[in-house]
Design a protein around this nucleic acid. Structure first.
Lengths: 342, 342
DNA sequence: CCCCATCGTCGATGCGTATCGACGATGGGG
DNA sequence: CCCCATCGTCGATACGCATCGACGATGGGG
């Protein structure tokens, strides 16, 4: 028997709304989309019926008929040892902006690689994709170019031609941090840098940061040593090595593993701001959570992702934004971890 | 003009596959679903055509025709100051298990409340929902009962009647941690507990943890003081207070804000394992990242969420699993933060 | 040797919405 | 006073897939 009432256990449809409101189904659709003028009287009838039934449109049917899903996919690098806090902030902000545009967020794990991109785009699960944790040489770049849906990268791959990329300006950040130490009179700087776990994954911001650091060191005439964090993230041996070759402790630029670095220093009896100078690349919250509040560059995950997603929606809304790299400017927040100039 | 070829810019359909394979569209569908027997010859024809076109089925059309979306929604408490690491682990594990079942994950922010639940269920965006960070008295519980899709709670609300709940056994964890200190001869225990930001949000595991701690304290005859972390998470004043009323430092059970607690202790010149005993509730990684490796209970976020999602899929696969609360057992890992018995 | 059960495939239909063309009603200008 | 443009609504159709009933082909048993 044909189903004509809403008694089916499967949720009301726009046809049910239409029947109750005494209009046609297409009118219901036009009330919801606003794509045709509707008289105030009819609108109210329909809206009341919608409220009465607590009607919600079927997303699948919408996607099928309307060619868009109101979903954006986010490729998240879970398995990485990168700061979980930062990651969360990124994803949260993306979700918030998406919701503000009445879109939902689909989570894709980065370990799916290009297959994940092809899947969500091919199955029409989403209208656009945000890719985080881009690699310098990333196979997803090529795939993105003819994926059929807009792709926004958070990070800057080597080949960013015709790509939409948004990120924090790691190069300037490194430049500023080294400059901060130089201004405090430091002449001997060690960068506690990303370790093999990160560099082997070819993360795009590592060379960018290094470039900025070296440029700044050269400009300010300070010696720069690059010290990658070991795989186990235990920094005591590294610290030992660094101290062994010196009369006095060097100044440190901690690009990653700040808590571990603070721990190792504490165990060695060294206090940043007193016994040595230290600056870091980290979130403001992390900088303040340490035993000594740390002079640092925040990576501004929220701002970066907000701008990224906002840009993405501009793309989706048809206002064809041109491709290109958009960097969020770096700035240093001074706290208590740099020794005053002697 | 009617579209009969795949030249439309919108991705191949099962009809295109059918044409190339020289079979009907329904046969393509049966090849993919396996719901009818197919000869080896036909199967190969179809599979080759699928590969040739890199065909992917349209998720919306599938949802519409098939009444299921292959998506599960996860309600994530972003705004909370709870350990981001733990959260990430939860979400990642959920995503991995979901992918293993050929499902995708839709992210819903908890700040949407019951409206979020109604939306994703009403719009048929998902086949099931996982709700994290449940409150003791949670309005989502009532909504979940007749949402139309299965809901799995991570956490245990007061009224868990007819609900599917999975969580870590916080009560036993607190019991064990206090017991650990008691066994080391400590008689004066302060719990560094969740602050107003958490208790005011009525998070379900806070009373469960407290119940276990008090029970254990009573059984072992130790004094228990409950010290909530202040909103700014700066623990120095709290530590000062705690020390002021005592001859010797008490033993600490750190339920939250472990890095901040370690920082405050370091600033006060107190070293866990030497100057006082400290145990914590945290992930194994966090326990080891501190200046002194911390004797702790891991909350096993991965195990909890794996079991939760696995259970959810059992529900979806029709094997009607009964409602009820499933707790992951707690155990203590001894490290270096408890003083040996004098 | 014929009948019937099983296997493998096909055609047709429905899922719920968006959108297009059509059309009656309304109102202003000639 | 009539014609035509605009406004508001309707009916029909397409979107891509899953599913159901039908049906030809095949093979075994009577």
């Amino acid at each position: 028997m044909p189903r004509t009432t809403s008694s089916g256990g499967s949720g009301p449809t726009s046809k049910d709304v239409a029947r109750i409101a005494g209009v046609s189904q297409s009118t219901v659709s036009y009330v919801m989309s606003g794509k045709r003028p509707i008289s105030a009287k009819t609108r109210k009838l329909v809206e009341d019926a919608i409220a009465q039934l607590t009607y919600e449109p079927h997303a699948g049917a919408r996607a099928l008929a309307g060619q868009r899903t109101s979903v954006i996919a986010v490729v998240v690098p879970f398995a990485t040892p990168v700061s979980a806090h930062g990651l969360m902030s990124f994803v949260e902000e993306i979700a918030l902006v998406a919701r503000a545009h009445d879109h939902d967020v689909l989570l894709v794990t980065a370990d799916e690689g290009i297959a994940g991109l092809r899947r969500v785009a091919g199955r029409r699960l989403c209208d656009a994709v945000v890719v985080m944790e881009v690699r310098t040489d990333d196979d997803r770049v090529a795939v993105a170019r003819d994926l059929g849906v807009p792709v926004l990268f958070i990070g800057v791959p080597d080949d960013s031609e015709k790509l939409h990329c948004n990120d924090f300006d790691f190069e300037s950040a490194a430049d500023l941090l080294v400059g901060e130490l130089a201004a405090a009179g430091e002449r001997d700087v060690v960068v506690v840098a990303w370790g093999d776990d990160t560099t082997s994954r070819d993360i795009n911001y590592v060379p960018r940061f290094e470039r900025g650091a070296r440029r700044s060191a050269q400009r300010h005439g300070v010696a720069l040593e690059w010290a990658p964090v070991p795989a186990d993230r235990v920094l005591d041996p590294l610290l030992e090595d660094v101290l062994a070759g010196r009369e006095a402790p060097p100044a440190l630029v901690v690009a990653t593993a700040l808590p571990e670095a603070m721990g190792a220093l504490a165990r060695r009896g060294l206090r940043p701001g007193t016994d040595l100078s230290l600056v870091a690349l980290c979130t403001a919250a992390e900088a303040q959570a340490q035993a000594v509040a740390v002079t640092a560059c925040s990576q501004h995950p929220r701002d970066v992702s907000r701008r990224a997603v906002t840009r993405l929606f501009r793309l989706l809304d048809g206002a064809g934004a041109p491709p290109g790299v958009e960097l969020f400017p770096a700035e240093v927040t001074r706290r208590d971890s740099v020794r005053p100039r002697p």
